[in-house]
Computed example of a mutant assay.
Amino acid sequence: MKLLGFEFAPLFIPFERRLQTTVVFQWTVSFIFLGFSSLGFFIFLFFTRFYYISVAYLAWYVYDFNTGEQGGRRFQFQMNNPIWRYFRDYFPIKLIKTVELDPSQNYVVGYHPHGIMSAGAFCNFATHATGFDKIFPKIRSYLCILNGQFRFPFFREYLMSSAIVSVTKRSLSWILQQKEKGNFLVIVIGGATEALEANPGKFILNLHKRKGFVKIALQYGAHLVPVYSFGENDLFLQMRSEKRLWVKNLQLKLTKLLGFSPPIFHGRGIFNYTFGIMPFRRPINTVVGKPIAVPLIKEPTQEDIDEYHKKYLTSLQNLFEEYKGQYGIDEMQHLVFQ
């Protein structure tokens, strides 16, 4: 039903779709608001008769401060939580394997594109909803995110209950130097700047100057793996800034200052399909490419880093070209690295 330019959802739809919408709404609100809300709640408790909760948690927070950089604290129940299957089916999200992964190796994985909220990265690699543990047996995934997210009280516990860790060099090194191999470290390489380019039909990746992930792969002999999620950029509509350069310049300055991007975007609502903060129902197909063998070089030179960075870009480009036709992308469309 359409009213005042809005397309509203039917009154009667299958209960399962209602559950999918509820779970995705919870995740979206958590992504946008839960960090600062938990900080506000933590401070608020200090001024109530329940102040002892914040005092006790503060002691725990100090004691546990580095856990996000030491492999996190995943819970299998949360990884296998049934609610993530509703999250998966909302879009839906699929994980596609192209080759087997050797559990005797470690992997540094580039996830592309960033999109607005990296929904595919979360579902595929921070949960088992798409069957990562079955598709790649004996491989342990980690989704690496900004370290600042682990500074929010309470929220950090929610993050670490899934396979989420900090993306700092210290964090990556801690995991890669463990005796147990088969670690699969997923980094959303393009970062906050790339999120500002997330729009349907755009394939712009912020990669030319992003080489830190290659350096750490060389330092630990971890194989590089390109991953491309077809559909990640289709979940939201973002205000285009080509004709409003002052807006884009402001966004870039805020991104540099804050560490995260402030895109101006919208998706759909809970009860309408036209406008809101929830992602549109668009399929996401996440293709895991072939690993690039990387030698162990404790002190790689810039030439070493540039060589394997170039190999990575070529492999990612080939992955995109091979699979784009299967997911409705025009033959004339190509990845643009900037």
Rank of each mutant, 00 (worst) to 15 (best):
K97H: 03
A119E: 10
N106D: 02
N124R: 04
A121T: 01
D89P: 07
V108M: 00
T98D: 03
V109P: 01
I96P: 09
Y111K: 03
H114G: 09
R88M: 04
G110T: 06
V108P: 07
T98W: 03
D102L: 09
P92I: 02
K97Q: 08
H114E: 08
L101K: 11
G120V: 05
N124W: 00
P113W: 12
S104I: 12
Y90E: 11
V99D: 15
G110C: 10
L95N: 00
V109K: 04
I93H: 02
N106T: 04
H112Q: 14
S118H: 09
S104A: 14
S104K: 15
I96T: 04
H112T: 10
V99K: 14
F91N: 05
A121H: 01
I93M: 02
K97T: 10
V99N: 12
P92D: 07
Y107C: 12
N124S: 12
K97P: 04
V99C: 11
N124L: 01
T98H: 05
I96A: 08
A119R: 10
E100W: 14
F87I: 09
A119N: 13
I116V: 14
D89H: 06
C123A: 01
S118W: 11
G120F: 09
N106Q: 05
D102M: 12
L101V: 12
E100V: 13
P92A: 01
P113S: 14
K97L: 04
I116L: 13
N124I: 00
G115D: 06
Y107G: 13
H114C: 11
P92Q: 08
S104G: 14
H112C: 13
